[in-house]
Deep mutational scan, measured.
Amino acid sequence: MQRVNMIMAESPGLITICLLGYLLSAECTVFLDHENANKILNRPKRYNSGKLEEFVQGNLERECMEEKCSFEEAREVFENTERTTEFWKQYVDGDQCESNPCLNGGSCKDDINSYECWCPFGFEGKNCELDVTCNIKNGRCEQFCKNSADNKVVCSCTEGYRLAENQKSCEPAVPFPCGRVSVSQTSKLTRAETVFPDVDYVNSTEAETILDNITQSTQSFNDFTRVVGGEDAKPGQFPWQVVLNGKVDAFCGGSIVNEKWIVTAAHCVETGVKITVVAGEHNIEETEHTEQKRNVIRIIPHHNYNAAINKYNHDIALLELDEPLVLNSYVTPICIADKEYTNIFLKFGSGYVSGWGRVFHKGRSALVLQYLRVPLVDRATCLRSTKFTIYNNMFCAGFHEGGRDSCQGDSGGPHVTEVEGTSFLTGIISWGEECAMKGKYGIYTKVSRYVNWIKEKTKLT
């Protein structure tokens, strides 16, 4: 034993070699072989497995989906700052455009905790909710729209109204504003409101030439003092309507412009014939205590009207009353817009006519005020429907199939267009061939041609 100890002390290297040989010859039971080890760690190889990531292109799944990435790591994937920024906006807080917040056709661009709407022409605001041009839906104005110097929408209202708090709607500024039905039992019968379409306001006024200088022999019209197929109006439903009495009662109609003036057809009036105007009328054979009678003290036909040349060209006249009318729910003026808007309103496509005229061709006159909704007829169809001249200051309205029309005794009465609950004068009943005849239409004086003249002559002093 002493000898062994001496050998170990003198030859430590020998001992180490012996131990190493023993270990190498022993069977290893701690580690699995290569094949079995792979069965336990069965993990798919990654895209760049075996390579240094710093030297390969980034992978979106590896960089940002398996674990949260930084902007720089995302930049490695896209290799483009702009594309990385677009991805980053949604990656950080989701897609803010998912709810489609942009209105009126706006395009949404996502941002971090926010979004941006790219608005089409005519709109602005956070969600493109603000109209900035009158060309689109009248700028959301209830009545009139004008573009300011910086191309912003400025709404306005006709006389007797003021802008509401929203700067879009119009509200009454006087007790009985024009064009409004205020009798409670008839307010439910107000005709369907007309909503502004998209309009090209630059070209809204037709490029028409008034044929002022045409000389033409007097034409022989049949029954051209021209509501057939209409309905009984309720008291106060058309408070701007008046009836004219002269040699015979209810020979023509008219509309209240203001307390002192009536507008009617020029062919209705004769110099030297006494005319009485009755406002607030409903049943011409009954006294309903809503009527107001006034005498006409002055007749002003349009300066281009000449019955000797043509009885229905420039067929418009103004009547001055001896005493002002007292405005109330049964006696209310009709609204008159400017030339541009009167023309736009007419193009809405349908209007209402009213009167006490004959209820059928050569038949009896109506006792109760009649009204009828009539569609506008395109000019080409209008011209083809008659052998008589249709001037540019006239328009056609009615039904091709016949059966409904204005008729004798309705002449001078109103053709009105309702705009968001307020009625505007767009025409004056003038003439036609018979009444409600198939293929024939009622012919009306186009008020847009005469609004400046009306307003100039009827100013209240």
Rank of each mutant, 00 (worst) to 15 (best):
W431V: 15
N135T: 13
N328K: 01
F424Q: 01
E286F: 10
N452P: 14
E418T: 07
W431K: 06
C335A: 00
I443C: 11
V228K: 11
G230K: 07
N36P: 12
F121G: 08
N304Q: 11
S49F: 06
K459P: 05
V92C: 11
W240D: 00
P235T: 06
K457T: 04
I316C: 00
A26E: 00
V451F: 05
S385C: 13
S182N: 08
I275S: 02
P44W: 06
H267A: 04
C157K: 01
Y312V: 09
A149T: 12
K68A: 14
A9Q: 12
E286T: 08
C268Y: 01
G409R: 10
D322C: 02
E286R: 08
S411I: 11
K311V: 09
W240N: 00
D33V: 08
P44K: 02
C435M: 03
E35G: 12
S448G: 13
D378F: 03
E82G: 15
A250T: 09
T332I: 05
T426P: 00
F55W: 11
S70I: 04
I275Y: 04
F251D: 04
Q57N: 15
V199W: 12
V257I: 06
E159A: 07
K168P: 02
A192T: 07
A307W: 08
D110E: 14
H282M: 05
Q408T: 14
K446G: 15
M394P: 02
I428P: 00
L367V: 10
N36K: 13
E72D: 15
C252Y: 01
T133H: 13
E286C: 09
N343P: 02
E124G: 15
Q90I: 14
C97Q: 02
Y305N: 02
S354N: 09
L244I: 04
K347Q: 14
L367P: 13
V277I: 07
M65Q: 10
K438P: 11
G413R: 08
D131T: 06
E171P: 03
G122L: 06
L103G: 11
C435F: 03
D315K: 01
C108Q: 02
G13T: 12
N213Y: 08
Q241H: 10
K39F: 09
L369D: 07
Y47I: 08
I210H: 05
I210T: 11
Y444A: 03
L425H: 02
K89W: 04
K387M: 14
K362C: 04
N5I: 11
S406V: 03
E72C: 12
E288T: 05
E73P: 15
C178K: 01
T190Y: 08
T389V: 10
D410Y: 10
W261H: 01
E129S: 15
N295E: 05
K126A: 12
D232V: 06
L372D: 14
I428H: 03
L321K: 00
P197R: 03
A164R: 07
N306M: 07
R294G: 01
L23W: 04
R404T: 12
V326N: 06
C18G: 05
P414Y: 14
A173P: 00
S217D: 09
P172F: 04
Y352H: 13
C141W: 01
P239G: 02
V202S: 10
N113S: 02
V174A: 08
G105W: 07
I300L: 05
I300T: 03
A380V: 12
N306L: 05
L318W: 00
G21L: 10
A173L: 12
A250L: 04
C18H: 02
N166K: 02
T389S: 14
R75D: 15
L425P: 01
N245L: 06
E67D: 13
W88P: 15
N213R: 06
N135M: 14
Q370V: 03
Q237C: 04
F196D: 11
K438L: 12
H361Y: 07
K152F: 09
I210P: 05
C268E: 00
V353Q: 11
R83G: 15
G106W: 02
Q167I: 05
F31L: 14
Q241W: 13
A366C: 14
S354K: 14
V273C: 05
C108P: 04
G229C: 07
Q237D: 05
W356T: 13
C396A: 02
T225S: 06
G413D: 07
V92E: 15
D110G: 15
R384N: 14
V359C: 05
A279W: 01
R191Q: 08
E53T: 10
E340Y: 15
V326M: 15
E270Q: 09
F399R: 02
C134D: 02
D131G: 10
C155A: 00
N113V: 12
F31K: 07
C155R: 00
A149N: 09
A164V: 04
D315I: 01
T16N: 02
D198T: 11
